[in-house]
Design a protein around this nucleic acid. Sequence first.
DNA 1: ACCTGAACACCGTTCAAGT
DNA 2: ACCTGAACACCGTTCAAGT
Lengths: 199, 199
Amino acid sequence: MSETAERRYHHGNLRAALLARAETVLREEGAGALSLRELARDVGVSHGAPRRHFADKQALLDALAVVGFTRLGETLAAADPGTGPFPARAGAVARAYVGFATREANLLDVMFAAKHTTPDPTAIAAAADRAFLPVLALITDGQAAGALAPGDPEDFGVALFATLQGLAALANRGMLADATLDERVDDAVARLLRGSAPR
Amino acid sequence: MSETAERRYHHGNLRAALLARAETVLREEGAGALSLRELARDVGVSHGAPRRHFADKQALLDALAVVGFTRLGETLAAADPGTGPFPARAGAVARAYVGFATREANLLDVMFAAKHTTPDPTAIAAAADRAFLPVLALITDGQAAGALAPGDPEDFGVALFATLQGLAALANRGMLADATLDERVDDAVARLLRGSAPR
DNA sequence: ACCTGAACACCGTTCAAGT
DNA sequence: ACCTGAACACCGTTCAAGT
């Protein structure tokens, strides 16, 4: 294992290894605990080596954000049953979103950090857009089925996303004492759906 | 309460001076630029001195969070005209919240950071509760006026706050390209009000 | 009581040098 | 092309000593 594995490792897998380790540290200890030097140590490489693959710490965080949006997109796509009444589909996707947002709270912080000042800021935006594509399709279905008033699907999409993002933020900060998160989600989504029905 | 106990350093109160300087740095450069050592330098004191007033960096951040919630409460209270139709009052308060949240984006990050692991975590929670008191009163008025369905005011409050917090987050991350923030706020609040009317 | 200054153990970043 | 290791300038935190 040693010779070939070492060689392969150092020739092409360092970026992936750093990213994987960073994801674990992020999940377990938060973004504040991320250190390029410690990551390098963990992965068995000198502290200067990461620079080859991440120009600076922010570049590493940006790469984590892209990973996060990709995972989120998969989660959302998998959550939509694709058939059945619109409110049931919307509720399933909504619970999946806040589930992801609370399970991966630290990752979410990195995904929505206001810092992305790196070489290619569009990479993150593109990953984010891709993640929300399944939701936009769902909304279009809802309009076609007469459950939602017609109009730009993004209007409802923004309102829905804002609601869920806000609920996740409250939950992650421990500010949702009285009711459970899913109850809050169901209640808020129900209000939004009622207020977005055709009139 | 009135614990401005006039601790003196060269020209006055070190704790207050550090806090004031920290608020400026936070507003202009973000939480990442906050350094206890630099703050001490700015204020003309040795790097060990802040420790007298803030046990560690997190204690400073927590104190900033309390300041932020206090300011937010004042802003919300001032925004409610106190009379007039409920939707107009709710709209005014909603716009005031997102206005604060976008004007003081860095402060908001600190206020809602998930870190508060310090001696007195209840201080922040208490400040937050106090900040939202005026909104709860407004909701009660709305129920009395028949604009909102009866029930625990906190149910509507959580949904409203989540929506606004989410919109502010989107705006602060530059993810609200198409429409202006106030348009998004008005649209989302209108949906929420329609969906929360008595049936 | 409040502040100073040295000390310690960590960082991120840069860069000449190795392979 | 990829990685090492020394160097630099910064941190947060601790603590004996000063005032």
